Computed example of a mutant assay.
Amino acid sequence: MHKEPPAMTHLSSKTQAPDNALPHIDCVLIGINSEKTVGRCIESIQAADYPRDRLHIYYVDGGSSDASILIAKQYEGVITIALRPVHPTPGLGRNAGWQTGSSPLIQFLDSDTILDRNWFSSAIKAIRPEKIGAVQGILSELYPERSFYNWIGNLEWNGLKGECESFGGNVIVKRDALEMTGGYDEEMVGGEDPELSRRIIRAGWKVIQTGVPMAQHDLAMTRFKQYLRRTFRTGYAFAAVRERERSAGSRFWQYEYRKIIIKGGGFSFSLLLAIPLMAVGAPAPSITALALVALGTALLLNPRIFKVGQFMREQQLERKDARIYAWHCSLVVLPQLAGVLRYHIGRIFNQPLRNRPARIASEISVQTP
């Protein structure tokens, strides 16, 4: 059963500091065909415990065919930015938003999120120190009980409290850090958030996880096809970001990347070797083939076999749920491996993965109420 995140005890913004001492914040929402969620996201920002005149909301639309822009325009003070790129990416939308504004802080949000009312109170405190470039909080899934996929997302959204190696798509960032690094990579179709965070860290800034509620996310994933598409793109993002980090001399995502190659690749390679051996039909090759498949399967199912107890402790799961999560951790490397291979094949033939082209030519139009 889903539980709302606990309310954070706090003093109101006006008792913490005078209004004129609180920084202005540009809230940049991005979305495509988000008519079901964008209004809810805007309303959550407007309901935040923060002086309304210091919040500036930008909805950046990546090429919707529904009523997303019309809905955003209905809210007073919201600036809509309509992008019509040939190949839409999250980086294009986020850059268009923060570059349009001028506030010293930028809160990035996906349009399918609901901002926690008290988030800005803790975020402002955490990001004040000079060397803190970005701050994130707890992102929880809105309806984890509605599907296995939502439940998995809810388990994996967040890292440990304290200084961290990267941030996700929902984060508050200093404008100085964005200007110093140039902002988001506008060509990446996945992994653009951790990729930027790594450049921000290399520029001398720190990224902090506060451990307090930041937003709720509506993944709305109910079909296996959606899960496969998302995990494929996750693998592609691991490869794309890992390539950049390797060139920069960083080990970021090295473990995750190697895990996909060793487990997913090892299992797949064992099958490829076993099939022709089985076709021979002789006892010795058949035994060898079975041994290869057994070895590859053991490699693939390592989390399911050996890590159930670990998942129980780390994720605070009952044994049944820990087993289910272990199956996910075992099998997810296969679609991720497909994404990794797609990235490297694309590099060889200069054919990177791109989002579906928009029907009209690239343009940016900024419309204010």
Results as ranks from 00 to 15, higher is better:
31 G>H: 03
137 G>N: 08
334 L>P: 11
362 S>L: 07
107 Q>F: 09
222 T>A: 08
89 T>D: 03
364 I>V: 14
363 E>N: 09
282 A>Q: 15
288 T>G: 15
149 Y>P: 00
272 L>M: 15
276 P>E: 05
31 G>T: 02
325 Y>C: 02
214 M>N: 07
225 K>P: 00
167 F>G: 07
113 T>I: 00
143 Y>E: 09
299 L>A: 13
126 A>Y: 01
206 K>L: 02
141 E>G: 08
148 F>W: 07
341 L>F: 10
358 A>R: 08
25 I>C: 12
150 N>R: 02
244 R>C: 11
51 P>E: 05
72 A>C: 03
17 A>L: 03
54 R>M: 05
236 Y>P: 06
180 M>T: 15
254 Q>C: 04
239 A>P: 00
193 D>S: 12
286 S>M: 08
304 R>V: 07
233 R>Y: 04
4 E>Q: 06
22 L>H: 14
109 L>F: 03
2 H>K: 15
34 S>N: 09
186 E>V: 14
202 R>S: 13
220 A>N: 14
347 R>E: 06
123 A>I: 04
204 G>W: 06
265 G>C: 10
114 I>N: 05
125 K>C: 03
288 T>I: 14
188 M>P: 12
92 L>H: 12
314 E>K: 10
362 S>N: 06
265 G>M: 02
317 L>H: 06
328 H>P: 09
300 L>F: 03
260 I>Q: 05
266 G>E: 04
190 G>S: 15
287 I>W: 06
46 Q>A: 09
144 P>R: 04
32 I>G: 06
23 P>C: 15
158 N>R: 06
151 W>R: 12
94 R>Y: 10
264 G>T: 03
208 I>H: 02
362 S>K: 00
243 E>D: 12
100 T>F: 09
239 A>H: 05
306 F>E: 06
245 E>K: 11
93 G>A: 15
369 P>C: 05
355 N>D: 04
259 K>T: 10
250 S>T: 12
356 R>H: 09
215 A>K: 08
198 R>S: 15
321 D>T: 11
179 E>S: 06
1 M>I: 09
319 R>E: 15
119 W>P: 14
34 S>L: 00
181 T>N: 07
365 S>M: 00
161 K>D: 13
355 N>S: 13
313 R>I: 14
28 V>T: 13
134 A>C: 04
39 G>V: 02
324 I>K: 12
89 T>S: 10
158 N>P: 07
32 I>K: 14
90 P>M: 06
232 F>Y: 14
326 A>L: 00
338 A>F: 05
292 L>Q: 04
2 H>D: 03
216 Q>G: 13
209 Q>W: 00
199 R>D: 01
194 P>V: 10
